[in-house]
Structure formats: structure tokens, C-alpha cells
């Protein structure tokens, strides 16, 4: 899941080299936190969160079979 979030995030920002994704959580919930350059935060969230919501939708589809909830957050 981490690689997928990294791939999506790197392609959406101006500074792909500054994208970091960290995993945390437990057996029931996986939390993926995206960290980007300060001027890329708006790009990754999008107006009314549209971009990060699209990322969540795609990542949850990928995680579908694992039986663990996945959340994607943006560090700001």
C-alpha cells in the first residue's frame, strides 16, 4: 500500500523528491501518512479534499482483500 501512495503522490506534486509516506496502525486499521513539501500540500489535498479522497478511494480498492481498514492522511 505504501508504494501505491508514494507513486500517486509523487506524480501529483512539484517536488516528488520530498514525498515521504509512513505507515502506522494495528491489525484492524492501517494509516498511511503522506508528507510533502509545504507548497505541495494544497496539491495533494485538492479543493474540498478532492485529490486526497481520490487517493483514498484507489488505495482502499487496492487494499480490499486484506480485510484491514486503510486510511490516508496528509501531514500539514
Amino acid at each position: 500500500m505504501k508504494e501505491l501512495v508514494e507513486l500517486l503522490a509523487r506524480n501529483l506534486v512539484e517536488h516528488p523528491d520530498q514525498v515521504r509516506v509512513t505507515e502506522s496502525g494495528d491489525d484492524h486499521l492501517l494509516v498511511l501518512e503522506i508528507q510533502v513539501a509545504p507548497d505541495d500540500v494544497g496539491k495533494i489535498i485538492g479543493r474540498q479534499g478532492r485529490v486526497v479522497n481520490a487517493i483514498r478511494t484507489v488505495v482502499r480498492a487496492a487494499a480490499g482483500r486484506q480485510g484491514r481498514r486503510v486510511n490516508v492522511e496528509v501531514q500539514s
Binding site: 501529483l12 485529490v51 481520490a54 487517493i55 478511494t57 484507489v58 480498492a61 487496492a62 480490499g64 482483500r65
Partner: peptide, 21 residues
């Protein structure tokens, strides 16, 4: 199927991201 999602929701999300990229 999971790439399509319910009523095409996942597919729409992917399409949105592709267009942005």
C-alpha cells in the same frame, strides 16, 4: 472488479488522478 468499484466510483477516482497527473 475492484478497480471499477461500486457504480464506477474507483474508476472515476483513478480517472480524476490520471487527468491531474
Amino acid at each position: 472488479g475492484r478497480l471499477i468499484g461500486r457504480r464506477g466510483r474507483t474508476l472515476d477516482a483513478l480517472q480524476y488522478l490520471v487527468n491531474l497527473v
